[in-house]
């Protein structure tokens, strides 16, 4: 015990020989902090207002103090928004839109990811004739604004009898995102060491077997990135859902817009805010959940080093 004490004391006694200068807060870092705070406030203040308002009663909202905290707290606006808010003449809430969005999201996710990962794999790792030309065309396609091809697409999809259906919207989402996603996958697969591919060519030589057994297991990260990208863009899409969605097949974003503009009597701000938040939640959840699955060093141990 005393030994320990002694050595402890000795440590305390000896002042460091080369003390480090303590870093103070300089004027520059204050400026940066202030700037960042303003940026954060820029986003946080509206969010604060939306969240608090969604829990307020209409009486409190009528008082006009938009920064006040909700009292009493009520979740009725959330229930109403989900269950019986009126969009036009239908008063079934956002839930219809939610399930429509899910029904659009899942097939278009599957379709776009399968199509573009296989195409990217072929373009990156196999000798495809005209691969360069094809890539160039994809590159151009990736930057054509949707509005330009909207009318032809409508004509095309009604010719194919999918206009106004959930499948129609799903397929069009998948097709429109394919050029960009193919480029993303192709660049990722280009980073796979050539010798791994050569080894697979000698071991199996089968396009699908190599894809399924070697390449897909190495693609976890890029699938997550693409998933986040796609979920966000498909869920948040408005224009495509508006133009291609028929009555009862509209996605959540379109239903939300209708709920907000449909007013009977006074505008139910609390309900509208709750509806907006409900619509925004799913991509956020996906983002936080999937972010955890990022793995590091996908080729670890494959090659020398």
């Amino acid at each position: 015990m005393s030994m320990v004490m002694q050595s402890g004391e000795a440590l305390v006694d000896s002042a460091p020989r080369f003390p480090r200068k303590r870093k103070g807060i300089s004027g520059r870092s204050i400026a940066i902090l202030v700037f960042l705070s303003i940026c954060a406030a820029f986003f946080m203040v509206p969010l604060y207002v939306i969240i608090t308002t969604s829990f307020k009663t209409m009486e409190q909202i009528r008082e006009g103090a938009i920064f006040s905290l909700p009292s009493p707290i009520t979740i009725e606006p959330w229930i109403n928004a989900w269950d019986n808010a009126c969009s036009g003449i239908r008063c079934e809430g956002l839930k219809v839109g939610f399930w429509n969005s899910v029904a659009i999201l899942l097939p278009s996710l599957a379709l776009s990811m399968i199509l573009s990962s296989v195409t990217g794999y072929a373009l990156a790792l196999w000798n495809v004739r005209w691969a360069g030309t094809f890539l160039f065309v994809l590159f151009i396609c990736a930057f054509v604004p949707f509005q330009i091809i909207m009318i032809p697409l409508i004509i095309l999809s009604s010719g194919l009898k999918v206009y106004g259906t959930i499948w129609g919207i799903a397929i069009i989402h998948a097709v429109l995102s394919m050029p960009f996603l193919t480029l993303v996958f192709r660049n990722y697969y280009k980073g796979i060491p050539q010798e791994i591919m050569s080894a697979a060519m000698m071991d199996s030589g089968s396009f699908w077997r190599i894809f399924g057994e070697i390449i897909v297991p190495m693609s976890g990260n890029i699938f997550i990135v693409v998933l986040i990208l796609q979920v966000t863009s498909i869920w948040n899409d408005f224009l495509l859902g508006l133009t291609f969605g028929g009555l009862g097949t509209q996605p959540m974003s379109v239903v939300l817009a209708n709920v907000v503009i449909t007013t009977t009597g006074e505008a139910a701000y609390n309900e509208n805010m709750a509806a907006a938040l409900l619509t925004a939640i799913p991509p956020l959840v996906i983002y936080f959940v999937l972010g955890k699955f990022f793995v590091q060093g996908i080729t670890a141990g494959a090659i020398k080093g």
Binding site: E195, I196, A200, P217, I298
Partner: peptide, 12 residues
């Protein structure tokens, strides 16, 4: 063939 960089399949 045994490759210059081994080229093992990292996920297997």
């Amino acid at each position: 063939m045994v490759f210059q960089s081994y080229a093992l399949y990292p996920t297997k």
